[in-house]
Design a protein around this nucleic acid. Structure first.
Length: 693
DNA sequence: GCCAGAAGGACCC
DNA sequence: ACCCAGGGTCCTTCTATC
């Protein structure tokens, strides 16, 4: 730490203060980068936040030094060994290349800001940011010219752009427009993967084939359709895999597109000069390490330095890096995945008043519990997160014998954790619950059963090759230096067991988790319901014909009503009483849906996904929803007639996705992309946009 | 040697 | 004047157990 400062710290200290916004992957074209850096530096200097950043940077510098030293110590023999390892691995990875799919990544341009401008045209042409003085979510292009960007605190943004207009976030609005765009996406790929409110991946291989049309033409068409439907513009990237498609969508943004042909040479050429930071999953730290230790700044150099990467990084990390160098990425439509945790945290002005801290803790527990109830979740591991006045983050966890979800339980255990830290000055408290009961794959809850994590790990080996951003993301953390011994050669113990992962049962549920919540809500509640059903609930089975008739005739009474019922159901996750379902209806006062609900258990999770098969249909898809529910009803009728009753419910659920909703069969459930949507507040998914119906 | 937990981080939107 | 979010995922390391 001593050396770097003295030498380079001449006249412009801000140059060494790299933050996310001055160093981002999104192009900051006409921006006076130096000025931005200076302002950010000036405004941050001396703050606790700044000091903490410096502390972290110092740690990274140490890491870099440490790795450099290790790299320097590699003997010629070592290097030749690792060169072989790398060469072999590169060949293996390359052999997994799949150029048969055409992926399209759509990214709405400055989404929140664009939506706000749509609803308030007077904002047009003026620099504007969505967010608050403490943090902004996104900025329009006028504001970006000043260096203003997402994740920048508002007070700094205002300094950069004094005329900046701040608009508070309104997720209802964004969800509404997001649904409109998804309706368009649906037409091109019913299994599209929503990555967030404003991003999605579509496998357009089939459409291209069916219409014998190029990816570029689809992109063109999709963009104009999105514009027609929403009045918003988007940018699109078309490439043989998701990782590349994502990079491509950024190239001609805003309102543009870029197509990378499904050709090995084209891919290699493209990737060769591509800065590593453009790759999803390679952030500031990884970039610094790769650059600082190995001098790698383009993807191509990943291959050139393959021996070093294999020598100094863990398997998963080196595999990832090499994949990037080869331009490989996800080409399959991944299985759905469960939500693993749920949390709530709040920042406040730092205090060391214990009573106050306990109060904050109780408030957060309350919020978290409410969110959990909404989704019918309960978990055994409770993690307390603390951020001290000096921005240091700590976590403290306990794993309990029983699953908890009530505010009281949460507070009780969280207080114990907090007590142990006590004399302390905090600026943030957070609570997270994980280790859900469904983790075990549902039904049994047998703790010895393979967990999802295990499942994904085993799949990991194969996935490694075609990782998409998710894997990327994780890989970075490997940077954490693998201890030297493990650096060795263990390149092949990956080939583990893909098959043993659990029973198909759990996977069926996975299907619906594309966006954060849906997932879990289904799991928790549905599991119970299914159990109930399969055991005895036949009573709930009502007159099918009756139900069918009503649904068919009153499409307008659309299912959004059902979702109301459903939410009330979910609100009582603790209540495993089988009568619950029977009671609900009276509360809702909607007998028709009551029947439907009881009988089919079909409702739109989070007003978005079919509780039965996981199909995704925003509430604006009124007709599609009607069709969809009709499908399930017909299916049910058929079963009734053929004598197959509820007893077959469970197996049936697993199969349904295969062909439900007619043409749009969703055998692959689009799970969300890796990261998808986690940044959105959960609430945004509950709030339904008032449009649909 | 493997497994579970706990703690700390990187990254994404 | 305002002074750096919140929700999630995955990975690695370390330890205590079995």
């Amino acid at each position: 730490m001593e050396e770097s400062e003295s030498a380079s710290d001449k006249p412009r200290p801000w140059q060494s203060y790299h933050t996310v916004y001055t160093n981002a992957k999104a192009g900051m074209d006409g921006v006076d980068k130096e000025k931005v850096q200076r302002v950010v530096y000036e405004m941050s200097k001396g703050s606790k936040y700044f000091e903490n950043e410096e502390r972290k940077e110092a740690l990274i510098r140490q890491k870099i030094e440490h790795m450099r030293a290790r790299a320097a110590k590699l003997s010629a023999a070592d290097l030749s060994h690792y060169q072989k390892v790398a060469d072999k691995r590169i060949l293996e990875l390359d052999s997994t290349r799949d150029l048969s799919r055409i992926w399209l990544h759509v990214d709405m341009d400055a989404f929140y800001a664009a939506v706000e401008t749509l609803s308030n045209p007077s904002l047009k042409g003026k620099p504007m940011a969505v967010g608050s003085m403490s943090m902004i979510s996104t900025a329009n292009y006028e504001a970006r010219k000043f260096g203003v960007r997402a994740a920048m605190p508002g007070f700094i943004a205002r300094e950069l752009c004094p005329d900046l207009i701040f608009v508070p976030t309104d997720f209802k609005k964004y969800t509404y427009y997001s649904d409109l765009t998804r309706k368009v996406f649906w037409d091109y790929d019913p299994n599209f993967m929503a990555a967030s409110l404003d991003e999605a991946y579509l496998d357009i291989t089939k459409v291209c084939e069916e219409r014998s049309i190029t990816g570029a033409e689809i992109a063109e068409e999709l963009r104009s359709r999105v514009h027609e439907e929403t009045g918003l513009t988007c940018s699109v990237g078309v490439a043989p895999n998701r990782l590349l498609a994502k990079v491509c969508s950024d190239i001609n943004k805003p309102n543009g597109q870029f197509v990378l042909p499904n050709d090995r040479m084209a891919v290699m050429t493209f990737i060769s000069s591509l800065p590593i930071r453009k790759i999803g999953g390679i952030g500031k730290v990884t970039e610094n390490i790769l650059k600082g230790v190995f001098g790698i700044s383009t993807c191509e150099e990943m291959l050139q330095k393959g021996s070093f990467l294999c020598a100094l990084f863990s398997h998963s990390s080196s595999d990832f890096f090499l994949s990037v160098g080869l331009g490989l990425g996800g080409t399959d439509t991944p299985e759905a995945r469960f939500r693993k945790s749920i949390s709530s945290e709040r920042t406040f002005s730092a205090t060391e008043d214990a009573a106050l801290l306990y109060q904050k803790l109780a408030d957060i527990a309350e919020m978290l519990s409410a969110d959990m109830q909404k989704e019918g979740l309960s978990g055994r591991t409770l993690t307390l997160k603390l951020k001290t006045a000096s921005f240091e983050v700590r976590t403290r966890a306990v794993t309990l014998q029983k699953y908890i979800s009530s505010s009281d339980d949460i507070v009780k255990h969280a207080s114990n954790l907090l007590k142990a830290e006590l004399p302390i000055s905090l600026r943030l408290i957070g609570l997270r619950v994980s280790h859900f009961n469904e983790d075990k794959g549902g039904v049994s809850g047998d703790p010895t059963q393979k967990t999802l994590t295990t499942f994904f790990k085993s799949v990991d080996a194969s996935r490694r090759t075609g990782n998409d951003q998710r894997s990327l993301g994780s890989d970075l953390s490997d940077l954490h230096f693998i201890s030297e011994k493990e650096t060795a050669i263990s390149l092949d113990n990956n080939e583990t067991c893909h098959h043993e992962f659990g029973d198909p049962f759990e996977r069926k549920h996975l299907s619906d988790m594309d966006d954060k919540n849906c997932i879990s809500s289904i799991n928790a509640c549905e599991m119970e319901k299914i159990d109930e059903l399969s055991s005895n609930k036949t009573a709930a089975m009502v007159n099918t014909a009756d139900v069918k008739e009503r649904t068919t005739k009153s499409p307008k009474r659309d299912l959004s009503r059902v979702s109301e019922d459903d939410s009330s159901v979910q609100r009582e996750p603790e209540d495993s009483n089988p009568d619950r379902l029977n009671k609900e209806p009276s509360t809702s006062g909607n007998e028709e849906f009551f029947s439907l609900n009881q009988m089919e258990m079909l409702f739109w999770v989070d007003d978005y996904k079919c509780s039965l098969c996981g199909a995704e249909l925003p509430s604006s898809f009124v007709e599609e929803r009607q069709e969809h529910s009709d499908f399930h009803l017909a299916e049910r009728l058929q079963e009734e007639e053929s004598g197959t009753g509820l007893s077959s419910l469970i197996p049936r659920l697993r199969i349904v996705p295969e062909d439900c909703s007619g043409s749009q069969n969703r055998r692959k459930k689009h799970k969300s992309s890796p990261k998808q949507g986690m940044h959105l507040p959960i609430d945004s998914f509950f709030t339904k946009k008032s449009s649909g119906q």
